[in-house]
Design a protein around this nucleic acid. Sequence first.
DNA 1: CACTCTTCCTACCAACTAAATAGGAATACT
DNA 2: AGTATTCCTATTTAGTTGGTAGGAAGAGTG
Lengths: 165, 165
Amino acid sequence: MYISARSDYALRAMLAVAAGGGGTTRPDGGTTRPDGGDGSRPDGGGELVKAASLARAQGIPLSFLQGILLDLRRAGLLHSHRGTEGGYALTRPASQISVGDVLRAVGGSLTTVRGLPAEDAGYHGVAAGLRDVWLAVDGAIAVVVDRTTLTDLLTHQEQEQAPAR
Amino acid sequence: MYISARSDYALRAMLAVAAGGGGTTRPDGGTTRPDGGDGSRPDGGGELVKAASLARAQGIPLSFLQGILLDLRRAGLLHSHRGTEGGYALTRPASQISVGDVLRAVGGSLTTVRGLPAEDAGYHGVAAGLRDVWLAVDGAIAVVVDRTTLTDLLTHQEQEQAPAR
DNA sequence: CACTCTTCCTACCAACTAAATAGGAATACT
DNA sequence: AGTATTCCTATTTAGTTGGTAGGAAGAGTG
């Protein structure tokens, strides 16, 4: 029900990495390329993007973003390289990374009730049925976010199929 | 993605009101009826339940619960009566009150991105497609919570139909 | 080997919201 | 009048989130 800034930033960063280093259309008209050299860009999938470039392109505080990128790397979604020509890159093609993958990487469980995962809520008496509702909600969310990949988002082809009412 | 304590308490209180004044099974074995007199109980739907009874039955702090009950009353889901034999009652049959009704009464919008409703997120560049994802998530949640009524929960007949993957 | 760049990691602070408490005003029944 | 109860507001407390700062470790370059 609530998407945190951390999850939001993580998705935007992943999209920017997948797109190859920054958005092309930025509202205030600045250039999104901080360093002059355009660098080698073998269009195949693995070019490295610097954290500073991502932060600038999507308007995310750099030091906050670094912690998020770290989570994404630990979850196995990003590969990083240090040094002068360092940066981040996807470990898999963008078509094989879903929104749910990113959300779970930074947020843990998808649906939480007062901070706890939905499955261990502990209801008494008449409220016992609530647990199943939360699990159903969790399942419904999972269907949407696991079906949508980064490629879908970049090509604007995400079809928002809400289940028939 | 995150169900707050306020939403959780609101649903449990509504269920207890619908059930007529408290859970029958409480873990520590105390009686759920605070006052000795059982009072008149015309089993039709409109018996009044005291806030103290609800708080005791579901383990919710009383004064915190009162604020939640106020929201539910303002939203038109509960009817209250003051005085010695006062209490709260549903304004509609439990079969006509959905989980979504209760959630929206206490929480406002169903899906929020960093505190804002999902529809006005304001994405730039490559992240533009994210807005549609959140709207799809919101729709998927709405289907589940609007389909489930309080009666479904009380009779344990809620069928958790996750849409076919 | 120095130097620079960048990721990596830890600790810390500020702001906000949720959660809970306390106390008082209004209302209804006896 | 008196009592029980709902109703409403103001305040406090705790925890999470959002954001910042400052290095330490690795990678390339001269």
